[in-house]
Amino acid sequence: MKGIVLNRSLPGQLEEWNFDSFSIKENQVKIQIKAAALNHRDEWCRQGLYPNLKDGVILGSDGSGIVSELGSNVKHLALGQKVIVNPALNWGDNQKAQAKDFQIIGMPNHGTLAEELVVDSDRIYPRPDHLTWEEAAALPLAGLTAYRALCYQGQVKSGEKVLITGFGGGVAQFATQFALALGAEVYVSSSSAYKIEKAISLGVKAGFNYQNADWTEEANSKVGGFDLMIDGAAGDPLNDLIKVASPGARIVFYGATRGNPGKLEARKIFWNQLKIMGSTMGSDQDFEEMLDLVNRDKIKPIVDQVFSFDQAVQAFDKMKAGDQMGKIVLRP
């Protein structure tokens, strides 16, 4: 059984290993992986920027495949069933926040960049029928993160003006698609004119290049303020979001790729009654509701490019460069 593992002693930090086929416990299933998608956490692992790193661990959190073996206590799944993987482990019973022992498949435990995955059966859900293997593999982690930020934390409502920052990445892509499906008036920001054009082709009203010094003035002139903003960057640009917020707006951020802001416009926050919230991945309830929305509206993830396992370094390098439009997928 082949798997792509972290090996920080190599120039590319990745290596394809041969494993013996994994055994399963009574409450587990074995999945024959058909496709697996990359997330930024995979590249952060390669760069040594993620906690609890261990060489020899199979990377990857997203996957789709076929049930090839069932534990003796597993009754709700069938051999040969087409499935996807919920990569969130140990969320706990509190819908408000994850438990202290929360983990994500793919580090420090083996992940989906392999020919096989063994996982507890409650992490497995039927693959949406309208999705290909590659599209299904692209959905779970980013889709779950986007859904929780937009729907649970952001409480998006039909007709609201919503800004999704950094369109082109997986979470921003799904947040955009979900917001459109739920009837919001959606806008995006990006540094790429091509990505903004792609967003408009999906039904987005307009896009703003956040590298332009006057983008906030342009946005306020065109839109008059946003009711909800979904952001994965934080850092000093968080103050730009405060500038384009309508009174009483919500700002939800699910990442901090730009780090912490050097300062925060506190007076604008309290005077305009703004709410700033954090969000990360999601609960099992969020995952099930996200799947319901995807199935109901036949939402199809945008797949940027599909690589084979022997092209893993190339796939990770593309993720690192950040020029993808949609998800990067690998097939065994």
Rank of each mutant, 00 (worst) to 15 (best):
residue 2 K to L: 12
residue 7 N to H: 03
residue 8 R to P: 00
residue 11 P to D: 12
residue 11 P to S: 09
residue 11 P to W: 05
residue 12 G to H: 12
residue 14 L to V: 15
residue 16 E to V: 15
residue 21 S to R: 14
residue 23 S to C: 03
residue 25 K to L: 05
residue 27 N to A: 03
residue 29 V to M: 08
residue 29 V to E: 09
residue 31 I to S: 07
residue 35 A to R: 06
residue 37 A to Y: 07
residue 38 L to M: 12
residue 45 C to Q: 15
residue 46 R to K: 14
residue 49 L to E: 11
residue 51 P to A: 03
residue 51 P to S: 05
residue 52 N to R: 12
residue 52 N to I: 00
residue 53 L to I: 07
residue 54 K to N: 12
residue 54 K to A: 06
residue 60 G to V: 08
residue 65 G to K: 03
residue 66 I to P: 05
residue 66 I to R: 03
residue 67 V to C: 06
residue 71 G to Y: 01
residue 72 S to H: 10
residue 72 S to E: 14
residue 73 N to S: 13
residue 74 V to S: 05
residue 76 H to P: 01
residue 77 L to R: 05
residue 79 L to I: 14
residue 84 I to M: 07
residue 86 N to E: 06
residue 87 P to R: 14
residue 88 A to N: 13
residue 90 N to K: 13
residue 92 G to H: 12
residue 92 G to V: 02
residue 92 G to L: 04
residue 94 N to Y: 11
residue 96 K to M: 09
residue 98 Q to G: 11
residue 99 A to L: 03
residue 101 D to Y: 08
residue 102 F to T: 01
residue 108 P to F: 13
residue 112 T to D: 01
residue 119 V to P: 11
residue 120 D to W: 01
residue 121 S to P: 09
residue 126 P to F: 13
residue 128 P to K: 10
residue 132 T to W: 10
residue 137 A to V: 11
residue 138 A to D: 06
residue 138 A to L: 10
residue 139 L to G: 03
residue 141 L to A: 09
residue 143 G to R: 11
residue 143 G to S: 07
residue 153 Q to S: 04
residue 153 Q to C: 03
residue 155 Q to T: 03
residue 155 Q to S: 10
residue 156 V to M: 10
residue 163 L to I: 13
residue 168 G to V: 10
residue 173 Q to L: 10
residue 174 F to T: 00
residue 177 Q to P: 12
residue 183 G to F: 14
residue 184 A to I: 05
residue 190 S to D: 02
residue 199 A to T: 10
residue 202 L to S: 06
residue 202 L to T: 04
residue 203 G to E: 07
residue 214 D to R: 02
residue 215 W to A: 03
residue 217 E to S: 11
residue 219 A to H: 01
residue 220 N to A: 01
residue 222 K to T: 01
residue 222 K to L: 14
residue 224 G to D: 04
residue 224 G to C: 03
residue 227 D to E: 09
residue 233 A to N: 06
residue 234 A to E: 03
residue 235 G to D: 09
residue 235 G to M: 09
residue 240 D to I: 05
residue 241 L to C: 09
residue 242 I to F: 02
residue 242 I to S: 02
residue 244 V to T: 13
residue 247 P to W: 09
residue 248 G to E: 12
residue 252 V to N: 06
residue 255 G to P: 11
residue 256 A to D: 04
residue 262 G to C: 04
residue 262 G to Y: 07
residue 264 L to I: 15
residue 268 K to A: 15
residue 271 W to I: 15
residue 274 L to I: 15
residue 276 I to Y: 01
residue 280 T to E: 02
residue 283 S to I: 04
residue 283 S to W: 12
residue 286 D to I: 06
residue 288 E to L: 13
residue 290 M to P: 01
residue 291 L to D: 00
residue 294 V to Q: 08
residue 295 N to F: 08
residue 298 K to M: 10
residue 300 K to Y: 11
residue 302 I to D: 09
residue 306 V to K: 03
residue 309 F to W: 11
residue 310 D to Y: 06
residue 313 V to T: 14
residue 314 Q to T: 15
residue 317 D to Q: 15
residue 318 K to R: 15
residue 321 A to F: 04
residue 328 I to P: 14
residue 328 I to N: 03
residue 329 V to M: 00
residue 331 R to G: 02
